[in-house]
Amino acid sequence: MRMICFASRNTKEMVRDRINLMFGLGFPVVVLLLLTAIQANVPVDIFPLPRLTPGICVFGLSFIALFASMLISKDRSSSLVLRLFTSPMTGSDFIFGYTLPLALMSLGQIAVCLIVAFILGLRASILNNLMLVLTLVPSIVLNIAIGLICGTLLNDKQVGGVCGALLTNLSAWLSGTWFDLDMVGGAFQAIAKVFPFCHAVDAGRAALSGDWGSIFPELWPVIGWAGALLAIAIAIFTLKMKSDSNGKQ
């Protein structure tokens, strides 16, 4: 009950912040529309929807990290956190209370992207669409974990820079959505392969095209990153929240 109540409050705080909501849901859709419009005017396949859509979904999820980090850092800097810490809420109430609404918002964001892509002409079976959503689950966890870490360690101005600018750019440039990483090659491609974003996009493309055998080789790095960052996020969150309340006079 406590966790559901906290999750409900967190959902309202995020959904009622119109600027965040417009960026989180609107910006990926605008990019999808823009790139599809460009594609319609060039004779070669630069941004075909079956390849573009999973990329936009992965890119859009980086805004979930921004949502998460903004909410947590604002809570930490306000006196509300003192009220929460003196209540009988437990550590798991906090973690799940923050995570649950973010997970639901992530699924909502993916659904919006898929609906817009369908309107623009994407044709894929319901099963393939569902497989795409499933392959994006580790990316959802990954971005929530990044949000938890940044929100716990940084103030609300800093998270704007780290999650709002750095993460969204990393997610965009290293994902292979805007250009083929094989064409760039060299150190850039090697660095991109270390990060999970291009693997998440390739796994999503495999799911959407029905090439299910190609999903898992690509999904393992994403699962690894997501699992590691989630463990780090929980450890940092628990330690920092204790020290925040204990260390101040």
């Binding site: 406590r2 003192l82 929460l84």
Partner: peptide, 29 residues
């Protein structure tokens, strides 16, 4: 127990009624 901290401790995007319900909810009501 319950505590009213030195600075106002409210959820800014919630209404007054929602804040009160939230405060009861985190105590398990």
């Amino acid at each position: 127990i319950n505590v009213s901290p030195q600075e106002t401790a409210i959820a800014p995007m919630l209404s007054t009624r929602e804040n009160l319900e939230f405060s009861a909810g985190i105590y398990g009501y």
